[in-house]
Design a protein around this nucleic acid. Structure first.
Lengths: 213, 213
DNA sequence: ACTATATGTATACCAGGTGCAGAAATCTCC
DNA sequence: GGAGATTTCTGCACCTGGTATACATATAGT
């Protein structure tokens, strides 16, 4: 598909990677707010102006790595096997993520990833930036539902926001526990049980929330 | 409860109101990003530093008016009549909001409110600020569910994020349509139908999303 | 009226982000 | 392989949101 990326293209990729690496290294060492973009630029041997040509905002130096995940749920729904409901496919995919300790599930305690996760959660501007990913994920998933599940627009959007919110909530819970010190392997069983519970709730609805006596 | 607010207290309230008013006026006239906080401070006849003593960030000049709504769902759940499920109480409350054209439902086309809404939705940093309200609403609602519905922690959190996400989605839809030019009174019937559908989905679950053939 | 305290101001400063003019590298075509 | 067009990088000045410091003013309580 791409026999010769061209020198220019390769150089761009290398610069992009260099900036990102320098940024993550510095951020992990001193904290996001303690490092200025000027310092990152200097460490990457690039001008501040160039840095902003590659990354539109300081926060993107960190979160651009999660860009692929934005459309992950949508892709899973589109690629689901025949006779499988979207929810089933998404549940299976999430459980697979837990098994594989995919950082997106929050169930990963490798020190590097743990530290990065903690930094993100402790930095309001980074959390805000993550929320925008959530919005993107909702849009993409709604689109996938509409197209592959013959679902009316409104239903697709409502289902999408519920699903994304629940996945996010599960991941946050795992992250919180692992961050608190619980080893991922110990948390695994509980994480699976919680995920099953969550997807069951999603499937069966909230009508069983008890009334006031 | 407060017989004598005291001169100091009253002055503070007046300053607060003056700054907020000056800000909204200027923002509506020229746009959020086109007006600097320095200009707002000058219009309110206050120093920049004082402005930041009253409002922690520029965005708060706009969104502080919605602060009350943050715990609205939680209050509704706590105050629900006997033998009423949380979901029923929330549905009734939302429908009442539609009837009364509560701006929080998106179903309000008064020019002032419409313009303000449009401005918020068109300004990324303001949208981000709104997301933080959403998070607060989720926490408060989860707490209310846990306490008044005898629901385990996880279930309460999951239910809360779903409910808040759906309400938000409904409001956004209404806002989009009204912003697009549809009069609120014309939209009303559709908004009610959509809300009923959304709460039914919330109650009954997503298990009926069709499989891939 | 007098003093402790809360509130406001002026000024200087920092960091993220952008606009601009020109230098340097890359590509293209001969 | 070199000349010119094009893209990318750079340095610099500049704007804005937000904070620190040090000082002035107004209020509250006696």
């Amino acid at each position: 598909m791409d026999g010769k990326p061209g020198l220019r293209e390769r150089k761009k990729q290398r610069t992009h990677a260099a900036i990102s690496e320098a940024a993550i290294t510095l951020f992990l060492e001193h904290g996001f707010n303690q490092v200025s973009v000027a310092q990152v630029a200097e460490a990457a041997e690039v001008s501040k102006r160039t840095l902003f040509a590659y990354f539109p905002a300081k926060e993107d130096l960190v979160v651009h790595r999660l860009a692929d995940h934005e459309t992950e749920s949508a892709r899973v729904v589109r690629a689901r096997p025949p006779r499988t409901t979207p929810l089933t496919a998404l549940r299976e995919h999430f459980l697979k993520g837990l098994r594989e300790r995919d950082p997106i599930t929050g169930l990963n305690d490798h020190p590097q990833i743990l530290k990065l996760t903690r930094m993100i959660l402790d930095t309001p501007s980074l959390v805000a930036r993550m929320e925008r990913f959530k919005a993107g994920a909702e849009r993409a998933l709604a689109e996938a539902l509409r197209e592959t599940a013959d679902t009316p627009e409104l239903t697709a959007r409502l289902a999408a926001v519920q699903i994304v919110a629940v996945q996010w909530s599960l991941a946050q819970d795992n992250t919180a526990r692992v961050t608190y010190g619980e080893p991922a392997d110990e948390r695994y069983a509980g994480a699976v049980a919680d995920a099953e519970h969550a997807f069951a709730l999603l499937a069966n609805g909230l009508r069983h929330l008890p009334p006031r006596k």
